[in-house]
Nucleic acid binder design. Sequence first.
DNA 1: ACCTGAACACCGTTCAAGT
DNA 2: ACCTGAACACCGTTCAAGT
Lengths: 237, 237
Amino acid sequence: MQALKKRVSVKRDDPHKAPKGSGRRPRRAAYHQGLSRDTIAAAALALIDRDGLDALSYRRLAEALGCEAMSLYHYFPSKGHLTDAIIDCVFGALEVPLPGPPWIERVRLAARNYRAMALGHPKLYPLMAVHRMNTVIGVRKLDEIIGLFREGGFDDATAARLFRDVGYYLTGAALDETAGYAKGPSSAEPVSDEAIARDCPNLAAVAGYFKPDSFAPTFEQGLDLLLEGIARLRKKA
Amino acid sequence: MQALKKRVSVKRDDPHKAPKGSGRRPRRAAYHQGLSRDTIAAAALALIDRDGLDALSYRRLAEALGCEAMSLYHYFPSKGHLTDAIIDCVFGALEVPLPGPPWIERVRLAARNYRAMALGHPKLYPLMAVHRMNTVIGVRKLDEIIGLFREGGFDDATAARLFRDVGYYLTGAALDETAGYAKGPSSAEPVSDEAIARDCPNLAAVAGYFKPDSFAPTFEQGLDLLLEGIARLRKKA
DNA sequence: ACCTGAACACCGTTCAAGT
DNA sequence: ACCTGAACACCGTTCAAGT
């Protein structure tokens, strides 16, 4: 994933080499204060949203925050800790519908909320998709979603499987819409449209249905298939 | 993704500093020959399969091949080109069932083949999942799969959507089985089992169904839901 | 407790030079 | 045509030191 972006060698000037005061000896930037886990994680998320996953480094994040890179280690002792916090921010805000509406509609709404969450942070999502939720906030959100499935009236084994099956669909859909075909070529040497027209008749025939305005109907069709199947399972149980 | 692995600082000795001949001036390693795109890509895949995605670097790959890192640039002018070739190796080998069996069973078989492909290279798959297929081999394989869906007798719009919907499910399932919950903690500070038992009653209740021996039934249940829905759509059309 | 600078072991990639 | 070494601009992270 990190491999596909070209390195640009802009020589960013060292802020300590010739500080704006330009006194005799290099004056230091003001001793920074007022960092916190929340502000750092929020700045990191904003950096990803704007410049993409590869732009997130301790050095660049520190620059955005006006502190030194090493200061961040006091709050996040490794990049893994920071990643966890960023994802907590986004995943923790996912709304799981409370009891009230018909059960199957609650699942449908939860699915749509998940999709909206991913589309709200398209550059972050590919990291979320391969990330395992194992923070306090993460497992509690998972617990909430599993609870929704258990309220469907299945035995636990079926509820557990349905939770995962719907999750599979949502993960794949969100990944496709954020990192997939519509995002432009990620290959180093993309195949030309002419070559596709010549060698890939099926792909050429349906290419029109792979554009962004087909995303929502594609998502809804698959969700319908799953939810209808689940509703039928429910009646049998 | 690359962030979560600890850097170990083993000091690997420079092979050119004190060559085994140990003559007066540093004798060079034999001028290497016989590299090719195929052997390099195969070695890269083997390296990933054994040591994981993070282990793939031009320097380490060159070490495995007995050449210098820079030699590889002659065959793959960037890591993106190499990544494309590795994924072509695996995705290009996916078998899409030919006409013969009932159509819905061909789709089922293709789905199982896809899962088997992912499980055959579990450490590579998370990269495949976020990778866009845009090589000649990649788009031809996609064309083949889209062809299968078009043979189902739907209008093109529906066939295109079903192709994607099934793909969503397969991507999510394969990702979960290769990078997901069962892989052990990826979080920097994983939540303890006691904390889960205390705070996450739903998760605790179904945790037994998230173990590896539940993967296959979970996969088959979701696949059944989708395929039954698709079969019903077909009758209506 | 919180922040900093220098240093280390890695990366991908460029370039000029060897065979 | 194919292979190499040195160099550059990045990384994440450690450490000893500052406030």
